[in-house]
Amino acid sequence: MEVEKYSKELDIAVRVVHMACSLCQRVQKGFVSTDSEQVKSKDDDSLVTMADYSVQATVSWMLSESFGSQNVSIVAEEDVQTLSRADSTGLLAAVVDTVNKCLAEAPKYGLTSPTKTLGTSQILEVISRCNSAGGAKGRHWVLDPVDGTLGFVRGDQYAVALALIEDGKVVIGVLGCPNYPMKKELLSYHYQYHQTMSKLSPPAINMWEKGCVMHAIKGSGEAWIQPLINGEDKLQWPSSATQIRVSSIDDPALATSCEPVEKANSNHSFTEGLAHSVGLRTKPLRVYSMVKYAAIARGDAEIFMKFARSGYKEKIWDHAAGVLIVEEAGGVVTDAGGHPLDFSKGIYLEGLDRGIIACSGATLHEKIISAVYASWDSSNL
């Protein structure tokens, strides 16, 4: 895989994700979870916030400007139906304002701002442009504007995830984690609670990092992390990057696993049984969003297992960026049958065998796959 081949795409994607994270931080800071104008319920009852729509509009506009809208195919989570409803006028106005403020900061990241303010119809148009169905041919950008909306609303972990798929393979992964803490132990604590506590007793320097952006190109064998540059910083582009590697722990008794916080679409009891049979002794980190992949790539955890409840279909935008970053950092990600994840079949991970298993190395991975086969028949999945 020629790393140079994707250098422009990676460069733009990383800058755009920094912009999107800055936008999210600003919205989260002023966010009141009871504000019905800012949180709309989608048909599937998942929370959608002003940040989701604003990030999607910002990323869509920047990618189209950088590569030409006729060349850009974007697969993304949100559509404009909810935003176009009569009772969403306040939300839509807030999105328009947020997007324009964010785009005005583009020069800080070495990108170009629009020549004039984008109007409501333009914003709706750039959001609805993200309606590609992906597939096995051509290039498709895959965006999850705010992965872990519940984490976002609660002031906890969430991620902005952008990947590029070419001919069915993920070739670029960028993951922005605005609340990623410097210390691994803080990952499993409620972020807002600790921020409140740290205001009461001043924390040690660097206890709270302002977040980070991780990125990788397929085949490079390298994954990188940068501290977040946000709109309020004096810092401007470029942001220095440091290489990250997965943890070298391969003894299950010493390994830390991550699992989803939400029980709605994952089977915690099967994961617990599996952890026990493999010999995992450390209490799992319950982490919102694709930050679980970030934790493995950075060496803060060794295992992420997710077994969906019957009928739930995994979507490509929830995994593409994170999977590539873990793999290039030296980790292994497959389904529970040991097969690579297939991103070529549209918006869902079709043909997924039972669940997803991400590990820091092959030894742990093999032990877990074996345990899945041993435990499966006696489970109630």
Rank of each mutant, 00 (worst) to 15 (best):
V3L: 08
A20Y: 07
C21S: 12
C21V: 03
Q25C: 07
V27H: 04
F31T: 02
S33A: 09
D35Q: 08
E37M: 11
S46P: 00
Y53L: 04
Y53S: 02
V59M: 03
M62Y: 00
F67D: 01
G68D: 07
V75T: 07
E77M: 11
S84A: 15
D87E: 15
L91G: 01
L92Y: 04
L92N: 02
K101L: 10
K101A: 12
K108C: 03
Q122G: 02
E125M: 08
R139M: 10
W141E: 01
V142G: 02
G151C: 00
F152T: 01
D156M: 02
Q157T: 02
A159S: 14
G168T: 01
G176K: 10
N179T: 12
K184V: 07
E185V: 10
E185M: 13
L186S: 11
L186D: 15
Y189K: 15
Y193T: 13
S198F: 14
S201W: 12
P202N: 11
P203C: 09
W208Q: 11
E209S: 15
M214R: 12
K218C: 13
K218Q: 12
A223I: 03
I225T: 15
Q226C: 11
I229L: 13
I229N: 10
L235K: 15
P238H: 06
I249D: 08
A253F: 02
A255I: 05
C258W: 02
K263R: 13
N265H: 11
G273C: 06
P284Y: 05
L285F: 15
L285N: 14
Y288E: 12
K292E: 08
K292I: 03
A294D: 06
I296A: 08
R298C: 08
D300Y: 12
F304R: 03
R309S: 04
I325C: 06
V326G: 08
E327W: 03
A336M: 14
G337W: 06
P340S: 10
G346M: 05
I347D: 05
E350C: 08
D353L: 01
I357W: 04
C359L: 03
A374E: 11
L381V: 13
